[in-house]
Amino acid sequence: MPGLISGEFFQETLALTRRLFIQLQRRPSTLIAGIIQPLMWLILFGALFQNVPQGLFGESENYGQFLCAGVIVFTAFSGALNAGLPVMFDREFGFLNRLLVAPLASRLSIVLASALFITSLSLIQVAAIASLGYFLGAGLPAPLGLLLVMAIVLCLVLGVTALSLGLTFALPGHIELLAVIFVINLPLLFASTALVPLTFMPGWLQWVASLNPLSFAIEPIRYLYLHPDWTFASVVMAAPWGEVSLVQALALLLGFDLVVLVSIQPLLRRSLS
């Protein structure tokens, strides 16, 4: 796209990203709720299953340690799924039309600013959850493992943010977008390994959960929490269709990102032209 690699492009991207942070500063309840809600999940669900026999949830010492990876991934997923809402409101209130007629170096800065904003919020939420999980007994991965956890979260956020932005331009309004978010949010959570291991699920649900992109992020993060001696060849998930190693889970996440990014390209070109 013309103007993509230029000082003007970076300047306008930063300006649009700053605008979103100014909105957040004026209405901080979004960030506060986005941090408090997953912390409540971690505390309440951890307490609910704290008396289960050790070993019932795999190699985890307690349910809080098992749950921490699921809460991290689901929180990042939920935030990224809402990435299209600011753009949708700009579209409905007419601000997006003003941007489209402005002399921008590249209109890609409009969606890139939203992606940067959501990514920043996701990292803040992950840091808060990991910190509380540490004090609740979940521990922390080694420094290199912690960096890989952040990379896995960012990889998932990239694909889901792109999906949300694609839905923003494909749907007529924010009511429809919110409806889609509500419909797919919790089903994807319960059809993943966030709350229970695969062995707890019926056969058909094991297949669904083992093909869920959330599971490809949850299981590697959970493995990194439990195994400081991890390698990229380590098996992180025993799916019904075969064992999945750490590097394979990362490749599947990257494949998910690539499919979504390629799928929304025609829609973005048409909507931003």
Rank of each mutant, 00 (worst) to 15 (best):
M1W: 15
F9I: 07
Q11G: 15
L16K: 08
L20K: 14
F21C: 05
R27N: 06
P28M: 00
A33F: 09
I36K: 00
Q37G: 10
M40I: 15
I43F: 11
F45D: 11
G46H: 07
L48I: 08
F49T: 05
Q50Y: 14
V52P: 06
P53M: 14
G55F: 00
F57V: 02
G58L: 13
E61Q: 12
E61V: 13
E61N: 15
F66S: 00
F66A: 01
L67K: 01
V71G: 13
I72T: 03
T75V: 02
T75S: 10
S78G: 13
G79P: 05
A83E: 01
G84L: 01
P86Y: 06
V87H: 01
V87R: 00
V87L: 12
R91M: 13
E92H: 02
F95A: 11
L96F: 03
R98L: 14
S106M: 06
R107S: 11
R107Y: 02
I110H: 06
V111Y: 10
A113R: 08
A115P: 06
I118W: 15
S122L: 15
S122D: 12
V126Q: 08
A128C: 10
S131F: 12
L132F: 13
G133K: 10
G133V: 05
Y134V: 15
L136S: 08
A138D: 07
P141Q: 04
P143L: 13
P143Y: 04
G145R: 04
L147P: 12
L147H: 15
M150T: 15
M150Q: 10
G166C: 07
T168G: 03
F169A: 07
A170L: 13
G173I: 00
I175G: 14
L178W: 15
L178Y: 12
I184G: 07
F190P: 06
T193F: 03
A194R: 03
A194I: 03
T199C: 09
T199L: 14
P202Q: 11
W204K: 02
W204E: 03
L205N: 04
L205Y: 05
Q206P: 01
W207V: 01
A209T: 08
S210V: 06
L211T: 11
N212W: 09
A217L: 10
I218H: 00
I218C: 03
E219M: 01
P220G: 01
L224N: 02
H227I: 05
D229Y: 01
W230C: 04
A233C: 08
A233S: 13
S234T: 07
V236M: 00
A238L: 10
A239F: 13
A239P: 06
G242N: 11
G242P: 12
V244H: 07
V247Q: 09
G255M: 10
F256T: 06
L258S: 08
V259G: 08
V260S: 12
L261S: 04
V262F: 07
Q265N: 05
Q265G: 08
P266E: 02
L268P: 09
S271T: 09
L272Q: 02
S273R: 15
